[in-house]
C-alpha cells in the first residue's frame, strides 16, 4: 500500500469508500436505538460486510493485472485444497498459514483478498452459513496484517517471527472473531460473562488451530516464499519481496 497504488485509485472508488466508512457508525447508532431484542447479529454482519467493502473496492478500483489475479487465485486454490485435505481433523487446517504466506509474498492488499476469498470459496465446499462474513473478515485481516508487518523487510521473514504472528493470529484474530460471532448469534447481547464462557469453550479449538498454523508455517513458509519469489523474479512481477 505505497503512495503509487493509492493515487491510481479513481475518484469514484474513493468516494464510495468514504461513504461506506461513514455509514458504519450510522448503522451502529441505529442498532442502539432499536429495542433490545434480536438484531445484534444481523447488524454486526452488515457492519463486517461494510468494513470489508473498502478493501474490495480499492482492489477493484485499481484494475489489477491478469498475472496478479491469477497468482491470488492460485494461493486461494492452495488454501482451499489444504482445508479440504485436512477435513477429517477438526481445526487442524493450513488455511491461516497459507494466507499469511500470501500476505507476506504478495503484499497487504492481495493478502486481504486471498484471506477473505479463501474463506468464502472454501465455504462453497463446506457450506456457507452465518459464520461466513466473520470468517472472511478474520482471514482477510490476517492476510492484510501479514502483508503490512512483513512488507519490505520491516520484520524479517524468518521462521520465528512468522510463527509468532501465526499463533497470535489464530488465537487473537481468527479465534476471537469466530467466537464473538457465536456470542452475538447465540445471545444477541454483549454481556461480559457469556462472552467469557464462549471464549473459554472455544479456547481448546483455537489452541489446536494455533498449533496447526505454527506447524504448517514451519513446514511451508520457507519453501513457499522461496517459490513465490522465484516465480516473481522469473516473470518480473511486483510485490513485497524485491
Amino acid at each position: 500500500m505505497d503512495a503509487s497504488t493509492k493515487t491510481r485509485l479513481p475518484l469514484k472508488t474513493i468516494v464510495s469508500i468514504v461513504v461506506i466508512v461513514l455509514c458504519i457508525p450510522v448503522i451502529i447508532g441505529l442498532s442502539l436505538l432499536l429495542p433490545g431484542q434480536g438484531g445484534m447479529y444481523a447488524i454486526s454482519a452488515i457492519v463486517i460486510a461494510m468494513v470489508m467493502a473498502p478493501f474490495i473496492l480499492a482492489f477493484e478500483g485499481r484494475r489489477p493485472q491478469a498475472r496478479e489475479l491469477v497468482l491470488i487465485a492460485v494461493m486461494i486454490a492452495l488454501a482451499v485444497a489444504g482445508r479440504a485435505a485436512f477435513f477429517m481433523v477438526p481445526q487442524f487446517k493450513p488455511m491461516i498459514a497459507l494466507v499469511i504466506i500470501a500476505g507476506v509474498a504478495l503484499g497487504a492488499e492481495s493478502g486481504f483478498v486471498t484471506g477473505s476469498l479463501s474463506a468464502f470459496i472454501s465455504n462453497f465446499i463446506f457450506g456457507q452459513g452465518p459464520w461466513t462474513p466473520w470468517q472472511m473478515f478474520a482471514l482477510g485481516l490476517i492476510g492484510f496484517l501479514a502483508g503490512m508487518l512483513f512488507a519490505k523487510g520491516r520484520i524479517p521473514t524468518k521462521r520465528l517471527p512468522l510463527c509468532i504472528f501465526g499463533a497470535l493470529s489464530a488465537l487473537l484474530i481468527y479465534g476471537l472473531f469466530m467466537d464473538t460471532s457465536s456470542v452475538l448469534l447465540m445471545t444477541n447481547l454483549l454481556s461480559g460473562q457469556s462472552a467469557l464462557a464462549i471464549y473459554l469453550a472455544g479456547l481448546p479449538f483455537n489452541a489446536v488451530h494455533a498449533v496447526a498454523t505454527v506447524l504448517f508455517l514451519i513446514f511451508l513458509a520457507p519453501f513457499m516464499i522461496e517459490k513465490l519469489e522465484r516465480v516473481r523474479m522469473k516473470y518480473g512481477l511486483l510485490g513485497n519481496i524485491q
Binding site: 486461494i76 486454490a77 483478498v113 476469498l117 470459496i121 462453497f124
Partner: peptide
C-alpha cells in the same frame, strides 16, 4: 459489480479440481 474478485473466484474454483 466486482469483476476482478469474481474472476478470482471462478479461477480458484477451477484450479481446485485441476490441482487434485
Amino acid at each position: 459489480i466486482i469483476p476482478a474478485i469474481s474472476l478470482i473466484i471462478s479461477m480458484a474454483l477451477r484450479f481446485i479440481p485441476r490441482y487434485i
